[in-house]
Design a protein around this nucleic acid. Sequence first.
DNA 1: TTGCATGCCTAACGGTCGTTAGGTAAGTTG
DNA 2: CAACTTACCTAACGACCGTTAGGCATGCAA
Lengths: 205, 205
Amino acid sequence: MIVPITPDHQEADSRRRIMDVAAELFLERGVDGGSLRQIADLVGMKASSIYYHFASKNELLVAIFERGIAVMMDAFDEAATDAELSDHQRLAAHVRAHLGALYENGPYTAAHVTAFRTAPPAVREAVVPSRDRYEAMWTGLIADLVAAGALDAQATDGVHRLLLFGAMNTSVEWFDVQRGTLDSLALAMTQQFWSGLALNPQEAA
Amino acid sequence: MIVPITPDHQEADSRRRIMDVAAELFLERGVDGGSLRQIADLVGMKASSIYYHFASKNELLVAIFERGIAVMMDAFDEAATDAELSDHQRLAAHVRAHLGALYENGPYTAAHVTAFRTAPPAVREAVVPSRDRYEAMWTGLIADLVAAGALDAQATDGVHRLLLFGAMNTSVEWFDVQRGTLDSLALAMTQQFWSGLALNPQEAA
DNA sequence: TTGCATGCCTAACGGTCGTTAGGTAAGTTG
DNA sequence: CAACTTACCTAACGACCGTTAGGCATGCAA
């Protein structure tokens, strides 16, 4: 429910409200499925007024995707400040942080994860550097855990990090925040990445 | 490269060629990103001619998604016929089969995985029963492995299956068939699901 | 040879898209 | 009070969308 605002109360945060509803719309319908007119309707203005805050739809998309990455990075940094953790707990904290970015800090990260792939090439290219920076955080974390002797060296080849990312990000399509806790989901993911589900792993070739 | 066809050579497989190029387009650009006119251009006909083969764009979407599921199911069944496998090998075979459906049998399964979420509700609802049947195959497989004493009972709660699905399906966004083999990718996925990456898993709480 | 189904075509429909031009009311500053 | 900025508006542009109506060649059946 988005209530219309009177001219008195609207400030520069109109830009933020546009981004909020746009991110939610792109998350559900995709980049091409959410139009500026729908966004404007939800915000309580006309489509042409969006151009006062953003030069184009592409620029709005870039702003949303960049914010999605910023939310992820903030969550990562905050998780990294929790010191005195075991290796396993450290990984779990970052998995929980990434899930928090997906579910607890607005639709930006979730919109990024689901809508990025259908965005125009110009938009994707503009966002790639930020994406790379976030990826580097994770490769650094995993390299740390390998160096600490906690993880197998094959974890550094990148494939397993991408598998973990895929598992975390795809959860936005089936995980229901109302039915399960993020803590338990984060634990399940960390468990699967860490030690798998086999009762006797050594029997694998 | 799609070469135009002369009236002599075109038969009832026009329907198939439409589905081929449409699936590829939906895979890359999303459901709303690929128009009937673009599809028709690639096939070498006019947009209105598509309506000779499909009653609507929605029906084309349903046909593509259904075919994506059929490809997955065929792959699953074929993997199941390989008898005399260890539990680990059995899981690995099905992971490999699912990846084969994603990469080796046309763009249908990959298009399903990436574009389904932005399809109109009517389309999604029409395809749900088939999706459920494929999901049931996997829950059955995992239940078997649990019953055989190979996997932890928590694997049956569905979450870990969804995590595995997420890891496999998201690979279409980063895996390059030219650079890595599907066999090695399937092995890495099975390994992570089976025994994880920790050197000393027992140190986890 | 006539009749009919097949598989495509041209042309157009109403609608929606991103975007732009220009206007207007309110608040701020001199 | 006047000039200016802020934050919206109305109106319209050309382009593209899914879809429909109706026509036109080809090939087969009677």
